[in-house]
Simulated scan of single mutants.
Amino acid sequence: MTSTLFEQFKLNDTLTLNNRILMAPLTRCMADDNLVPTEAMAAYYARRADSGLIISEATIIRPDAQGYPNTPGLFTQAQIDGWKNVTRAVHNAGGKIFAQLWHVGRVAHPYFFGEGDVLAPSAIGVEGTVPRMRDLSYQTPKAATTAEIKQLVADYAQAAKNAIEAGFDGVELHGANGYLIDQFLHYSSNQRTDEYGETPENMSRFALEVVAAVSDAIGAQKVGLRLSPGAYFNMEPDHRDKAVFDYLLAKLNARELAFVHVGIFDDNMQFEHLGGRVSDYMRARYNGTLVGVGGFTPQTASQALDNKRFDLVAIGRPFIANPDYVNKVKNQQPLTQYNEEMLAQLV
């Protein structure tokens, strides 16, 4: 019943995946105090190299991109060298790995990077506190200037170059889940009146500029993009968002990206303005390789692939609980159930 999961998949001209199971990006907060990946992280990823492709935990592109403690970076030589140990371990185990590039935008906090502004499309804050650091409340961000936006685009491109230097097979741009790129794509977080706001074309501009810059830096076939057309995390929904993603996905069809990745925690979530599930909305509009995610079992994932709802499936929490997830599924062995206590371990 799960044979489709174990088919090879040609991702691009130079990269063929051993199966159609991706390890989803999973924030673990296990880098050292300089945001350098550790030897324990190298072992952690290597144990999961049986997946067709690992997408790393979200990795910050520059100091003010940080909104969680001990999340790894890709902007210093020490961080690049630390990631070299990780990618070497994964490759030695026969795996492939992309770096997920991250700027959290308005949910960043100066606690992590010292004095300076929290940047976002607009000066619209969110309620709440920093995850794992409940004494830190979110701040009202500063609306980024055009010059600051251009620098952000350049910093994404540099982080992508750093990722290739570190041995990654490619990168995924984190354009989902209420973080910086996503904040430009939703009316509730983007109230700009310049060339980055008001219309679907303008609101898509930052995402497309980042995609173009990173593609120019490392090649479009090594670039994936995660998107959340349905606002559901640190974001208020707005029916006008659909027009933004209609425009963006049409533009992405003209680019030969490695994949577009659905950004959702539960694929069964329904969004009225999108006509139902986010993955179905994206499949109807994006012609390239689509990665589904969000609570799939081996059986439901295989069925979704058979029904061509998407081309690859990303598995998250079950990979935390089962480093040998692929082998267990292939051999029809029972899976260990995930629980939150596992987040404190790196096994």
Score class of each variant (00 low, 15 high):
L5W: 09
K10F: 01
R20Y: 10
R20K: 15
R28N: 11
M30E: 11
D33R: 12
V36F: 08
A46Q: 07
A49I: 03
I60G: 11
I61M: 06
Q66L: 14
L74C: 14
I80G: 12
I80N: 08
D81M: 00
G82M: 00
N85K: 13
T87Q: 05
R88D: 14
V90W: 01
P121F: 06
S122Y: 03
A123C: 05
I124W: 10
T129R: 10
V130P: 07
A147S: 11
A147Y: 00
A147I: 01
K150L: 00
A159V: 02
E165A: 15
G167Y: 06
Y179G: 03
Q183G: 05
S189Q: 10
E198L: 08
R205T: 03
E209Q: 14
D216A: 11
K222D: 00
K222V: 00
G224W: 03
P229R: 04
P229Q: 06
L249Q: 07
A258R: 00
I264C: 07
F265E: 14
D266P: 09
H273P: 05
Y281E: 04
A284H: 12
Y286F: 15
L290G: 14
V291P: 06
F296R: 12
T297A: 09
A314P: 08
R317G: 13
N322T: 07
K330H: 13
M342Q: 15
L346I: 13
